[in-house]
């Protein structure tokens, strides 16, 4: 009985010593090993599917943010659609004329038209002057 207890106690002491050695080994890993472990971890994390990592275009978005974003876009689309329908019902010809075409975007994005927009005040003033001249002469 005493022998059994002694053996158990020796086993525990042995395991404790082994644990201390292995713990120390884990804490004192060399820089190259740590670096390689880090690389291995990053390589494994790269395998995570996008929806699991919760990233979107490099930004981390929570589920609530994603839902809010979808809701906002839906509201904007719905509102834009409704406005267009109202205009179409009231003045079909005018609404058709005012519909945005791809050419309008091209015009807005072109450099020349951006310069024109910068001088918009000048052209507004010029227009008003011409109109007042016409009024006084006509």
């Amino acid at each position: 009985m005493n022998d059994d207890r002694q053996t158990q106690s020796d086993d525990e002491a042995f395991a404790q010593r082994a644990k201390e050695l292995l713990d120390a080994e884990g804490e004192n890993l060399s820089a190259p090993v740590r670096s390689k472990l880090n690389q291995a971890r990053q390589a494994a994390l790269d395998e995570l599917p996008a929806e699991k990592s919760g990233s979107f275009g490099g930004f981390n978005l929570g589920p609530v943010s994603v839902v809010m974003m979808i809701f906002s876009v839906s509201v904007m689309l719905w509102f834009f659609d409704l406005t267009l329908i109202e205009e179409t019902e009231q003045e079909p010809v005018a609404a058709a004329e005012e519909q945005v075409t791809p050419d309008d975007f091209d015009m807005l994005l072109s450099v020349a038209d951006l310069e024109l927009m910068n001088d918009l005040d000048f052209y507004t003033w010029l227009g008003e002057e011409l109109e007042s001249d016409e009024d006084t002469t006509g």
Binding site: L22, G26, E27, L29, L37, R41, L45
Partner: peptide, 13 residues
């Protein structure tokens, strides 16, 4: 990431 960072050292040992 946190989990792997926690276990990698001991796992390597």
């Amino acid at each position: 990431n946190t989990f792997l960072a926690e276990v990698e050292g001991r796992a390597f040992v």
